[in-house]
Computed example of a mutant assay.
Amino acid sequence: MDPAPSIGIALAFVVMVLFNILEGGNPLGILLFPPMLLVFGVTILISIAGSSTQDAKNIPKSLKLAFAHKVAPAADLVPTVVTLAEKARREGLLALEDQLRDIDDPFLVKGVTMAIDGTDPEELREILETEVDAKRAEYKQYAKFFADCGGYAPTIGIVGTVMGLVHVLEQLSTPEALGPLIAAAFVATLWGVLSANVIWLPIASRIKRVSELETSRMELAVEGIAAIQAGSNPRLVAEKLRSLLPSDQQSAEAA
């Protein structure tokens, strides 16, 4: 589990509460159920309306991906692929079958297994690259749902404020009640903007980042599998795979 999203969002709320207190406000004053119900409820519902039933079913899976999923660095695959390349070069592809049991990367295992089974190299690359594209498209849709929430939430907040101000205008005969009513009306706008920028959009960005990391790892695995199947020199395999890594991971992997 990567704690970055949970820590970031939690600390953002802590800072905002601290700011509110330092400004002389009362944090409980913004924890009003009606505007929160309107902003969160309507935002999620209209985002579902703009998606599909399957997208709605994938919300728990998307949240788990954002908060609980941790992608191992692509650099971790390099030693594994090089070891497989060395063994395949010395003993042939069939010798890799037993070694695959100790590898915990399903995509790499699948690709090497297909290579062992004699799948045509071009066909194998096409199959694996199609799987990478499918994974990227899946995560893109997950991120889109929360990005849509981030787009709708501020507008829903404004709608809530307008509805609250309509209620304020109905109370003009009681001036002493206008202050609290106006303040409550603007809480909806606050939650609309706040939820968009502190919850929805960060979740969408987190899913996009997970997608980048995971598909990059898969792409590196594709190149490694192709090299193993071709019987390439393990040293050249290592250099090629390192060249696909970000510069900071290249240094760490070489060390």
Score class of each variant (00 low, 15 high):
Ile182Thr: 06
Ala183Tyr: 09
Ala184Gly: 15
Ala185Pro: 10
Val187Thr: 10
Val187Ile: 14
Val187Pro: 10
Thr189Trp: 03
Leu190Asn: 01
Trp191Val: 11
Trp191Gln: 06
Gly192Val: 13
Gly192Pro: 08
Leu194Pro: 02
Ser195Asp: 07
Ser195Cys: 04
Ser195Gln: 00
Ser195Lys: 00
Ala196Glu: 07
Ile199Val: 15
Trp200Cys: 08
Trp200Gln: 02
Leu201Trp: 01
Leu201Tyr: 05
Ile203Ser: 13
Ile203Tyr: 12
Ala204Arg: 03
Ser205Tyr: 01
Arg206Ile: 13
Arg206Asn: 04
Arg209Asp: 15
Arg209Gln: 15
Val210Ala: 08
Val210Thr: 13
Ser211Pro: 09
Leu213Asp: 12
Leu213Glu: 14
Thr215Glu: 00
Thr215Trp: 02
Thr215Arg: 00
Arg217Thr: 07
Met218Ala: 06
Leu220Trp: 07
Ala221Lys: 10
Val222Trp: 04
Glu223Val: 15
Gly224Glu: 09
Gly224Arg: 04
Ile225Glu: 12
Ile225Trp: 04
Ala226Thr: 12
Ile228Glu: 05
Ile228Gln: 11
Gln229Ile: 09
Gly231Tyr: 07
Ser232Gly: 03
Ser232Ile: 02
Asn233Lys: 02
Asn233Val: 11
Arg235His: 02
Arg235Thr: 11
Leu236Lys: 03
Val237Thr: 14
Val237Glu: 00
Val237Asp: 01
Val237Ser: 05
Ala238Glu: 15
Ala238Ile: 03
Ala238Met: 13
Ala238Asn: 07
